[in-house]
Design a protein around this nucleic acid. Structure first.
Lengths: 246, 246
DNA sequence: CGTTAACTTGAATTTTGTCAATGCCTGTGG
DNA sequence: CCACAGGCATTGACAAAATTCAAGTTAACG
């Protein structure tokens, strides 16, 4: 039911300054009159090197942001979920490929329109700056993770970020969905699939998580996970004792 | 002569929309009437956690952007040189500490003023967005480096970036100044001082660079350096053969 | 010119990656 | 609805890369 939703119903409309229900304009609101498009799992929304002529809003599903080096090495610089915007920080050309990791829906908006709308409304401008600053913050966090964290800390940080993402809505029930493969996780965390797999196994053995199927993880001890993640924000003052291997 | 230049000469003036010589407003132009302050080598411009109430322009010298994990591990997420702006992408609080790595001069501007000026002028706005996008691009590049590049590629990429920085002005004469210590380089590249040192030695043995003093490097073979850096942008199509150790 | 921090070098160790084999979901087709 | 195939994940043994620990050197600064 996701797949056949390309350009359904609603016709394309010129986008005037769009206001959300309460009358406050939002970046996401700019997309609200755009038709929803479906993207098959594995398909690309755009490719590294394409003219960055459009921005997108994810309405359902998940994307991975991929960069490929000349010799084939792959890096995932981020994952995007429902509600996230894609391509806002791209100027002339996209510097990365955006691929669906599961059946995904997006709304599309010409960058020209996006820029025009922002130019007209101060409130949208400050939101744009906020969006860019948030992206920067996430990128910095990833730099810290890759520069100085161990495999165990990287995987824990990743799971913790996903927990926090869902916890915003459901304060309890720390069950996390992992739509991406182990390879995606590895390329995001600067590790190999084998190392990711081993750490997941150890986290399970330590009863920090419980893997129920490949794409679902229950977080049994979020506080311990936060310690293992070597998370700055955490008020868990003590350093975590790493898990034993055997 | 750098040290005693705190708040010299020029008095503080209210900053109206400031225009550069040619009449086109620029972000850097906003700082042009601000007094220049000197910062001792090793001193901090601001600290991680401070209220982000000001933005800065580096007019001389160099800064390192530092993040410290709870257990003391240090990450440098960037270096800033003359002409660069500092703190633009910070919202409520600075997420990092900015320290001078040599005697450095900056101009300071209240964020309120910065935001006001930008709010008034569309040309500044697009420059701000451009600045933020450039920062994002750099951060992504660093993520790629840290996620998937070898020690040799990391150091080569770093030197190459510095070469390109100076080459903008002097198209020839690839002599690079390294004001930072090996520890700074290591914390920026996600390596240890020893590894950085070993790679530098190997690059010298391979006659790719020539170390003349601790803080100066002559790049003898920039094209080879670019290959060793596994640089995407490079049209050097072939994969570089890594340097031999012995 | 001497002191000292910064850097280099070497050897041993650890962590992560590589290679290879096995096991297990998941989605397809009967 | 079940069986099966094939991709994905796990596990183990081994190798490689980078770190750690420990001396030595060197260059920068007073």
């Amino acid at each position: 039911m996701l797949m056949e939703s390309v350009a359904l119903g609603e016709s394309f409309v010129f986008v005037p300054p769009v206001f959300e229900r309460e009358g406050r304009p939002t970046l996401a609101g700019l997309f609200s009159h755009q038709p929803v498009e479906g993207i098959d799992a594995g398909a690309a929304l755009f490719w590294q090197g394409d003219r960055a002529a459009e921005v997108f809003e994810v309405t359902e599903g998940a994307l991975r942001i991929v960069r490929i080096l000349a010799d084939g090495r792959r890096v995932i610089t981020g994952f995007l979920f429902a509600g996230d915007l894609v391509g806002v920080s791209q100027r002339d050309r996209y510097l990365y490929t955006a691929e669906a990791i599961e059946p995904t829906c997006v709304r599309r908006l010409a960058r020209r329109r996006f820029d025009e709308a922002i130019d007209k409304q101060a409130q949208l401008r400050s939101q744009l700056v906020g969006q860019l600053c948030d992206e920067m913050t996430a990128a910095h966090e990833q730099v810290v993770l890759l520069a100085r964290k161990s495999a165990e800390e990287r995987v824990s940080s990743f799971l913790l970020a996903l927990v926090r993402r869902v916890s915003k809505n459901h304060p309890s029930a720390p069950v996390v969905n992992l739509p991406m493969t182990r390879l995606d996780m590895a390329d995001y965390l600067g590790l190999t699939i084998e190392t990711v797999s081993r750490v997941m196994t150890r986290l399970q053995a330590a009863e920090v998580i419980s893997q129920t199927g490949r794409h679902t993880v229950a977080v049994l001890r979020p506080a311990r996970l936060a310690m293992l993640a070597a998370d700055d924000e955490e008020d868990g003052l003590d350093a975590a004792v790493p898990l034993r291997s055997h």
